[in-house]
Design a protein around this nucleic acid. Sequence first.
DNA 1: AAATTAAATGCAATTTAGTTGCATAAACTA
DNA 2: TAGTTTATGCAACTAAATTGCATTTAATTT
Lengths: 140, 140
Amino acid sequence: MSQENIKGILKTHQLRITDCRMDVMQFFLDEKSALSQSDLENQLTTYDRVTLYRTLNSFLDSGILHRIPNETGIATYGLCHDTCSPDQHEHNHVHFKCNKCGQIECLEEKVAHHVTVPSGYKVDGINMIVDGICGKCALI
Amino acid sequence: MSQENIKGILKTHQLRITDCRMDVMQFFLDEKSALSQSDLENQLTTYDRVTLYRTLNSFLDSGILHRIPNETGIATYGLCHDTCSPDQHEHNHVHFKCNKCGQIECLEEKVAHHVTVPSGYKVDGINMIVDGICGKCALI
DNA sequence: AAATTAAATGCAATTTAGTTGCATAAACTA
DNA sequence: TAGTTTATGCAACTAAATTGCATTTAATTT
């Protein structure tokens, strides 16, 4: 994706175009997998931890990123699909977590499954996390 | 569940019977919902933070507890079902997270769904997190 | 039951993650 | 290009996760 396209995404979400936001955006586009704040810190060393933290938050608020549930206790983030808007997030897709390399990626498959909940409960979203061994690690 | 039964669970998992482990176990049995380490710290104030931390870890290792994925970045734990053993965990059940009170609970429904993954990938488990409003919060 | 062995606990300390305030610098607007 | 708004970096703080070590306690053996 071109620099201009990234600028477009930022503008669409009414975010100012800054070096940090451009680089973070590019990083998420290059890596297909979910990233944690420390991943950013390790790769984009020119920026302050706090700046990266606030960049993630502004991306979250504007609907560019979403948080991906995992059991480790470390927040990870992934790019939203085109179908996401700040108001209405559409994250009912499937994430795959490799138990060897730890990488989390977004599978294209949609969760279409119906879930039965106790009466009186209201369902907003469904998230599915599949864990196992990814293609790369399976070869090792 | 009686004290003796709890002792039995600990023995089955080859864990020494200590006050802390008994109390933590009892706490998980009383609360039906998932708990975080800080929940334990707030309720079981007689024990050191580190002791609770290590108790959670030993319960994890022996298969008494499992981690429940969530997107907040705080690890939460829930009791495993009877079907779990240290070697083979059976956690393909559904968790419900209330967006109002934040409580996470385990729904009895089993995930029976088949998932399509890229070729070369191996699936170990499937986790499903449903979020919405729980019965209690819906009444408020 | 006492002695031995192995493991759990508490304390101190460290590392890492998440968060806020404020002065400065940069991006947008007119 | 001047003025306004927002983003950044630094310092500082809170909270979570983790490790080492001395002490205590539980289980085992005699």
